[in-house]
Amino acid sequence: MLIEEIPKGSNVNSSTIYFTSSINLSARSIKQNDDGESIKKNRTKVNYNLTSLMNAQTNINQNDSINNGQLKSSQQIQLERLVSKRLSELDSTTKSFELPKNFQYTSIHSTGGGGNDKSSSKKSRLGNTPSTKKILAAKRNLNSYFEEERNLISINTILGLNYQFVDFTDLNKNKNKNKRRKIERIRPKLRLCCICGNKSNYTRCSLCGLYYCSVKCNNLHRESRCT
């Protein structure tokens, strides 16, 4: 089953992930619901199992552990979302601005150079052919390009690279106990006090989770950073 409805309240701890979409269909629940309470919502949420849709389309689903077309657990998806949010926060520079409509660069050769060719520099933003005209006027962001991309394997490869450095260990893992994972040691994490920057291995703010190293820093933290 590729598309099915999932009641909103139930926390399904399955290995598949359901992407909700708020299309206002009068879809009925296919599965019988055990809780029976959350069906009464007016607006039903249709949920797409994106991973299996991908796998169905690209038929790479079985026994290929290198590929990221594998089913991901919900925790992994959530983790990736958090990581990418933080990374894009760190990636953004200051406020960006829009280029003015008539902005163009006029080549120095066209004015003072005195050369014979003066044709090309005039139309610097217009584009010579229909396809380049389209590209130069696109003003699209990266996400829209990703959405348009048909080849899901390449998207998976490209996006998966961003999370290569997140070593996802399933919190309730048991199945791959006797695999290599066991041998890999886990490096202790570096914990630094959010106020003074010293090491802080044991203490952590109960409200916001930031680390601190002493009572003094904790008091300062409560006054300043704690949300």
Binding site: D167, T169, L192, C194, C208, L210, R225
Partner: peptide, 16 residues
Amino acid sequence: DNNSTTSSNQLVQSAP
């Protein structure tokens, strides 16, 4: 660390 959304999240904190 030092970021209110990720530092309070158990998932991020426990992930190596």
